[in-house]
Computed example of a mutant assay.
Amino acid sequence: MATRARERLLDAAEELFYAEGVRAVGVERILDVSGVGRASFYRHFTSKDDLLVEVLQIRDRQWRAWLSGTIDGWHLPPGQRPLAVFDALAERFSRDDFRGCAFINTMVELADRTSAAHGVAAQHKQKVIDYLDTILAAAGHADHEATARQLALLVDGAIVTALREGTPDAALRAKEIARAILASAR
């Protein structure tokens, strides 16, 4: 039963943090939504920050699995995969529950580069760069490491712009910029 309580806490926290923000959601709210008692919360997590770190670690694995699974599921040749990232993002931005990037949101809200949550968010961004690097290398791009960092900047910019504008169009505009970057890198 303790495992189920932990899962309920993680599920409730993920949903609430993403929908309402890390600072806006207190432990009491997480307890109410999860139906877990305070003593059980503290058996599983030392603090809300500890819970946040685990939520971000889980979300990192899920988000990266979603991205690579989406790209792999389209069965594209290697040369088309880097640009397909932006098509995947456009689909994500079209969802009713899209509220930006949980990792960017956390870094902005906490504004503490030394926090454990910031560290997890920064690691997530590096893993996304690593994924982009992998698909760029597979596509035959010589300067794939530098190009991966450029595309990651476009990804983050598209995410923030899509949130600001409320449409998936930012992903398609970023795709066109990425297309120009990839063409010039050839």
Score class of each variant (00 low, 15 high):
100 G>S: 06
117 A>V: 05
105 N>H: 04
105 N>D: 12
151 L>K: 10
159 I>Y: 11
138 A>R: 14
139 A>L: 10
122 A>G: 08
97 D>G: 03
144 H>Y: 02
142 A>K: 02
115 S>D: 07
113 R>W: 11
154 L>D: 04
161 T>S: 13
129 I>Q: 12
98 F>K: 10
122 A>Y: 11
123 Q>M: 11
126 Q>A: 13
98 F>H: 08
93 F>C: 11
117 A>I: 04
164 R>L: 14
121 A>T: 03
137 A>N: 01
125 K>P: 00
98 F>I: 05
139 A>Y: 11
92 R>L: 15
96 D>I: 04
158 A>Q: 11
130 D>C: 10
162 A>D: 08
137 A>C: 00
99 R>F: 02
102 A>V: 09
115 S>I: 06
121 A>H: 05
133 D>E: 08
153 L>I: 07
145 E>V: 15
161 T>I: 01
142 A>V: 03
108 V>A: 15
137 A>E: 12
147 T>E: 09
106 T>K: 07
146 A>H: 07
164 R>D: 02
97 D>C: 09
114 T>A: 15
111 A>M: 12
95 R>A: 15
170 A>D: 06
125 K>N: 07
98 F>L: 07
109 E>H: 07
165 E>S: 09
159 I>W: 13
124 H>D: 02
97 D>W: 13
168 P>V: 06
144 H>I: 01
139 A>C: 09
103 F>Q: 03
96 D>G: 15
99 R>D: 04
133 D>A: 13
120 V>N: 02
163 L>T: 09
129 I>F: 05
103 F>Y: 05
149 R>L: 13
138 A>L: 12
153 L>M: 14
147 T>V: 15
119 G>V: 09
139 A>V: 06
163 L>I: 01
159 I>Q: 15
132 L>H: 01
126 Q>H: 09
138 A>I: 03
149 R>M: 10
113 R>T: 12
107 M>K: 13
115 S>T: 04
119 G>H: 10
117 A>K: 00
94 S>C: 03
97 D>Q: 11
161 T>D: 12
112 D>P: 04
125 K>A: 14
148 A>S: 10
102 A>T: 08
132 L>N: 02
106 T>G: 11
97 D>P: 04
109 E>D: 08
138 A>N: 13
102 A>L: 14
105 N>R: 14
143 D>M: 01
120 V>E: 01
162 A>L: 06
170 A>L: 05
141 H>K: 01
96 D>W: 09
154 L>S: 07
154 L>N: 07
99 R>M: 04
155 V>S: 02
157 G>R: 02
107 M>A: 04
